[in-house]
Simulated assay, not measured.
Amino acid sequence: MLPIIVWQHLTVMFCFKLNGRIISILDSFCYIIFMQESWRNFLQTQHAVIENDHVIHFGGLMAELKHAQTGTILVDLSHYGLLEVSGADAQKFLQGQLSCDVSAVNINQAQYGSYCTPKGRVLVNFTVLKKNSDWLLQCPVDLCTPIQKRLSMFVLRSKVEIKDCSEQWVRMGVAGEQAGMLVEQVIAPTKSDLDESLALSVVHSAHTSIVRYTPDRFEFITSVEDAQKLWRILSEYARPTGAASWRRREIHEGIPVISAATQEQFLPQMINLDLIGGVSFKKGCYPGQEIVARTQYLGKLKRRMYLAKIATHEVVAEGDEVFCTEMQDQSCGTIVNVAPSPAGGYDVLAVIQQSSVTTGGFYWKKPKGPELIIGTLPYSLL
């Protein structure tokens, strides 16, 4: 059990103000940039090894991956960014742009969704949250700027503002056997608001939002000024690890993340978004909706996303091709996401030809290359 003083610390930090001073737009910008640099410096004092603003590990990648199998982990999620969509027409605008039913999202319920090209190919997929009257779209941080610009092209006369607020918030995650207990202790006064029967339930305090992905995986989206205090509290009970431990959890849960390497390669159903609530077939139009719906109702989906393991010492990358015995020299799939396995090699999500799954014989990067061993996802593909 966490001591009562934990919540007292959090209550104080959630009420933090900038000494009562009114900040100008320029001051605010400089403050955010400074504090994010401060956050990176803080992580380095915690022994984080950081490359390209991503935490690689806190001293030993393989040891962290092994710990994550049975222990509780704490992960910096700066590899994710946030787009904020606000204004009187924000919900209507997003409903006409994203594949999910945005009207089903509320302050206590998030949802997966995607943004597609007119041909139905996924440009990016999100976790969609609502905070107060604003909407937050979480996706890989390097896609935030291009997606913000593309969405802004369609605002026209709508009362909608889209901005990249990645620098305004710090993202961190806890996962593992003790994660649920840890989060319950942290949010004790509002515990009942975090619906334990639902995936993607959300609870908010003044400066922190907590997303429940599964019973043992949670994300904190917290203000920059509160992040260091929160990290210190959580790290007393969870081991800090690099981003690979979190990615591996997402992979085994069958949650895809489209990156720059895989944009415009898949329909939403190919990456199983329809199976995790990321596609609505009852809402109105959105870019690519006609093709997505036709594929669904005519049963023409030939490829699905599968969990697999690849035993290799070479580096496996998102966007790599997959081959199979049945199709010989012709590619039959693509690597969507990848994370190193504590047993060696890599765990991956791969979109592959469904008709070939029963016959087997899948290979990475070239015919007769390292074999993909198909695993089992936590949801049915039927």
Rank of each mutant, 00 (worst) to 15 (best):
H207D: 15
A339I: 14
L26P: 00
A260D: 13
T295N: 09
N19L: 10
G319I: 10
H207Q: 15
G319A: 12
G345E: 04
I25Q: 10
W169H: 13
I310G: 02
Q111N: 11
S380M: 05
A188T: 15
K17D: 15
Q296R: 11
P189Q: 03
L136M: 05
G87D: 08
V257K: 01
S38Q: 14
M153G: 03
G344A: 06
S152I: 09
A311N: 15
D320E: 02
H9R: 14
G173A: 14
E37V: 00
D226F: 02
T214I: 08
T214P: 07
F266P: 04
G375K: 06
V155F: 06
A317I: 05
P287E: 06
H204I: 12
P370E: 04
R247M: 13
T312V: 03
Q289G: 08
T145M: 09
H9I: 14
Q148E: 14
P118K: 07
V316K: 04
E84H: 05
C332T: 14
L234K: 03
L382T: 07
S24Y: 01
G87L: 12
H57F: 11
S235T: 03
A206T: 12
Y31M: 06
N106V: 00
L123E: 13
V85Q: 05
R21N: 07
T214Q: 10
Q97K: 09
A317M: 06
S245Q: 01
S341L: 04
S356E: 08
Q296E: 15
L372H: 14
C139L: 15
M172N: 02
M172Y: 06
W7A: 11
Q97M: 15
I255D: 01
L61E: 11
L198C: 12
S205E: 13
H79F: 03
M172Q: 09
V75C: 01
I373Q: 10
S197Y: 08
A339S: 15
Q111W: 00
I251V: 05
C165L: 05
L273T: 04
N125R: 03
A339D: 09
M35D: 08
Y213D: 02
R217K: 03
G242W: 11
S133D: 07
C324W: 07
Q46M: 14
